[in-house]
Nucleic acid binder design. Sequence first.
DNA 1: ATGACATATTCAATATGA
Length: 278
Amino acid sequence: MRVATWNVNSIRARVDRVVDWLVREEVDVLAMQEIKCREDQFPLLAFTEAGYDVEIHGANQWNGVAFASRLPMDDVTRGFETMPGFGKPDAAGSLPLEARAMAVTVDGVRLWSLYVPNGRELGDPHYEYKLDWLNKLAVQTTEWLAAHPGVPLALMGDWNIAPLDSDVWDIRVFDGSTHVSEPERAAFAGFEALGLRDVVRERIPVGFTYWDYKQLRFPRNEGMRIDFIMGSEAFAELVTDASIHRNERKGTAPSDHVPVLVDLDIPIPDDDDRPMIF
DNA sequence: ATGACATATTCAATATGA
């Protein structure tokens, strides 16, 4: 089974590239982030014609996550129970919840698509929101792991954190910036403390997953590594290979992020055995 | 000094991104 994560930066602007890549790379399950549309706006047809079912969690022109899979998706959940909101409180005083997290189970593997809040600036309310969001997710993950011992779990997505200085092209440029601050790195390390680990880095130590559109960042290879697949021990044991698809940053109308993929030692049914989707 | 790029939305000017 081939499982991937990709911040697509608008699925409506990227649908052809995304579906082409899924088919070309024989991906079974894709976790998407920044789909930037509501469920009713999602370009479903291109996916279904290629044999993929889609589960969507979108709210408006910002954020939004989704899964595309050619294997059945079960136990679809949107958001998580203790997830904090952000923005203007409603009459009851609660903050709007953003579409940044959802999960599905495929072949007994629990998969999350995560779009961690950006943080904007150190000290910005959005920065506190980012740290709170991550810490609440870690607590939730702790509880889930305790309740589902031995079940493979992967938290996949755009973490908006560069855990190592070498995860940005020049750490000096990031002095005083988000993504590299100690509290963000501590929040990321909190997931490692739960027994999750970056199953891609242990196979691909070097390489970015994001390059800004501006300032010739990609031609200069001035990028960041911020998209990760954090697997539980049971998940990590299934991983046989990993890849970062840098070529998807090239060509016409790319996303600013590229796909990150793992191969799992889970046999999938032949095409002939798979139900047809029209 | 600032923007540079790309996406969304009340299609014009603004919000967001990292």
